[in-house]
Write a protein that binds this DNA or RNA. Structure first.
Lengths: 250, 250
DNA sequence: CATAACTTGCACAGTGGTGTGCAAGTTATT
DNA sequence: AATAACTTGCACACCACTGTGCAAGTTATG
């Protein structure tokens, strides 16, 4: 078997195939966290056999998806904060929406599969962040005080995931998803829908910006960065020029 | 094989074992909707082989759980309504809580497994009811008007299921679960936490009543319009190896 | 172009699950 | 006590999936 040698740079097509596998896996595992390698391979346009050229075992593949997804989600939430806990929460919702696919697959793996332990591990920092914001918000009387902080944080997380699911099921527009996630998290946090609306309207950073081209059918290869952990050299540069206008995810 | 004859009344122990299988299955399928028959049988204190004495196939067993659970949930929600849609929604939440185990297993099966179609079917009446209440509430300006009725109904359902999950995870008390489900559904429906609290406080039918040992045996004093396949009525003691027929498995 | 890198198909071993037949046991019921 | 009802263990066929070895192909790349 040729589990690709990491000391030498891999062949270009091989690198692409590896990414295709990861994308296919992410897609399929979203629907069924126990999708077969056969299916994943087919989705990537490869044979099952060649998956073993990139990943020694199914577990290794899933773990890779997990860490990659974790990185993206963590990155998306990295600089999220605000003096007003309500804005911070809405912002978290919005950022989660910008990473729906990754967030959902993480959620799937967090429940089932042999990696739910590792997954909880990956998600801990994010959850910690939310919890601390919630605590702060409760202390500041910005959020409801009738639910224990930890519980409330969990409920907010659950609300966000619910919306993500619903958004996929009903195939909502990008903008509608953005709006709904914020509304649902704020609602769970204790705000009336009028209050939630006011919070959103008055804060520019919560506004929807049409950056990504999501929503339609997927292009054969997403322009999306699935960054491999080794950044030894930049063999590919086509994503170099980026419009980094504020919080717009690419 | 002896798929028990339905024309003749089955032997008492057989009837009990059948129920034990269903209970074990409901329990295990809650954690893992693809739990093996081996595991289910063990949970019921039987051998895998004897399950086939009661159910011709795994599918048949799952279907049975589905219909039984559907009946209970439907029954629990049968007479739920109120002029005030907010009260109605809280009431639905409360009733769902009173059937957590059943509701959750239904939710599990609704997502995965070959019966998700049939499951959607089973759940339709309940969902219909919720949707019509939501529509009414929006029209009456009792609920938020910034989310389409169908979407809102789905989100409320999702919020309720989230709380149910969280309640199980965190092992909340019966009373706390009751309270949280109502709060979460009302929050999603657009109410602030103060408003939600007010609604709950002012309506006696939303108050928590210490239910008779939820979960295992049938509610002794409920009118129970739900027909168990056998209508025998003695409280069966739950401790595992009580009703076993032959020698204990190693 | 030559070659190493990569993919593929096939065969095979192993695992864990379902569903069945059957003979031998155990137990409720009459 | 006799009998029918039920459970069990075992053996078996069957399926879907993972993981591996290998020989033969294809393709990127220097």
């Amino acid at each position: 078997m040729h589990t690709i040698d990491q000391t030498k740079p891999p062949r270009r097509d091989a690198a692409e195939n590896r990414i295709a596998i990861l994308e296919s896996a992410r897609l399929l595992l979203n629907r069924d966290p126990e999708a077969s390698l056969e299916a994943i391979a087919a989705g990537a346009g490869l044979s099952r056999r060649s998956i073993y050229g990139h990943f020694a075992t199914r577990d290794e593949l899933v773990t890779e998806i997990q860490t990659l997804g974790g990185q993206r989600v963590t990155a998306a939430l990295a600089h999220v904060d605000h003096v007003d806990s309500r804005v911070a929460i809405a912002l978290i919702g919005a950022r989660l929406w910008s990473e729906v696919e990754n967030v959902r697959v993480m959620a799937q793996l967090a429940v089932r599969g042999p990696q739910r332990a590792a997954m909880a591990d990956t998600l801990r920092p994010v959850r910690e962040k939310l919890r601390s914001i919630v605590e702060r918000g409760i202390a500041a009387r910005e959020l409801r005080t009738d639910v224990a902080p930890t519980t409330l944080a969990n409920l907010i997380e659950g609300a966000a995931l619910s919306v993500l699911d619903e958004a996929i099921r009903a195939d909502l527009s990008n903008e509608e998803g953005h709006r709904l996630v914020m509304l649902a998290t704020l609602a769970t946090a204790g705000l009336s829908w009028h209050e939630a609306s006011a919070v959103i309207v008055h804060h520019p950073e919560l506004q929807f910006v049409e950056a990504p081209a999501r929503g339609e059918t997927e292009p054969p290869r997403a322009p999306a960065p699935l960054q491999s952990p080794d950044a030894s050299h930049e063999t590919r540069d086509r994503t170099a020029a980026s419009t980094r206008t504020s919080g717009a995810p690419s």
